[in-house]
Write a protein that binds this DNA or RNA. Sequence first.
DNA 1: GAATGACCGAAAATGGATTTTGGTCATTTA
DNA 2: TAAATGACCAAAATCCATTTTCGGTCATTC
Lengths: 197, 197
Amino acid sequence: MPAVDRRKQVLEAASKSFALFGYKATTMEQVAKIANVGKGTIYTFFTNKEELFDEILQSSIVEMRRISEREIREDRDFFDNLYRVLDALLEYRSEHELFIKLSQELRDIGTPMAHEGLAKVENSIIGYLQGIVEHAISIGEIKPLDAQVVSFVMLKLYVALTTDFNQLREPLDKEQIKEYMMLFLAEGLKAESPGAR
Amino acid sequence: MPAVDRRKQVLEAASKSFALFGYKATTMEQVAKIANVGKGTIYTFFTNKEELFDEILQSSIVEMRRISEREIREDRDFFDNLYRVLDALLEYRSEHELFIKLSQELRDIGTPMAHEGLAKVENSIIGYLQGIVEHAISIGEIKPLDAQVVSFVMLKLYVALTTDFNQLREPLDKEQIKEYMMLFLAEGLKAESPGAR
DNA sequence: GAATGACCGAAAATGGATTTTGGTCATTTA
DNA sequence: TAAATGACCAAAATCCATTTTCGGTCATTC
């Protein structure tokens, strides 16, 4: 084992740079400089910029899944678990600039890799949610529906409330977002008919 | 009244051109040519290209509202009415190229006027829905919530199912879209607890 | 043999010449 | 003489040749 783990140095430097400047504006030269490493060294660990980016993205995805997973408790119901998972993802997102920066980059200059990366994250979240949804369906906790559609809608709803809505009015706070999420997904809007309960 | 209504000629020509080529790629010269009118004539009716575009957009918005309004029946419940309104909007959209073209233009080259125009349409739809929602709340038909948030989510859900979803899988058909809309908005996902009914 | 940075070609940024286009207005037309 | 027009203008968009930047390589160094 070497005195300094250069691979790790590179990963950390790249991670910082992608989060700070986005995909396009981080140059391999700059990553090398931040990592205190020659440019060539990067290429002994990663075949190209794309793969370096992908590795960072993957580890973010793994981290998000890990964070989500530890919120799941078998003894709580689906909606309670969902509530916690979404909260954790919300938290993670607010702490990690990478995704915010990539969204911005996609909007402003349409970098294809930013688009691809965000799509990858989105798909992996949907895939993860899909598993949860399928399980909830199998034990009859929620209605038997297409799990992919449900997961997709759940994510879109989440993004609509946390992000898209901010262009219309001042942002909703965390508590409100949770309430609306649960309301739309679990109970629906219909007023309980008087005396029905 | 003149033998030919030049203002109408211009409007129709511009309407065709915007729908066919989008905002940026329709030139005033071309509108004039299609309308069989001198370029200067356009400016006797409209102060500039932007206003011409806006007039066409406004009449589309008015038309959409008219179409929506005739689907509303006081004797039907909120969700039934919502179902019909969304169906009518779906229908309208599939018949009118303008909005599809503008979305495409926004995505491909980011024309600011396309963005502004689509936002205007979106806001006017939300505003219209908001009225319906407020009414439903006032008569206790749905839960007392922020009507703007509810309207916003309703529209986002609709767009997610009709448009965004198509990038993930083959499009849902009309019937499925309606079912999911009603399910998420009205009833929620929660399985009816056995014997609750 | 691991690390490096000078080097290479491809791709992107730059900027200035050229073309297009929104908008005007003197002239024409009915 | 009021409405219609298209030549005309300035500004914006486009093109294109030149320069610069950047991802990736590899001979040299440590």
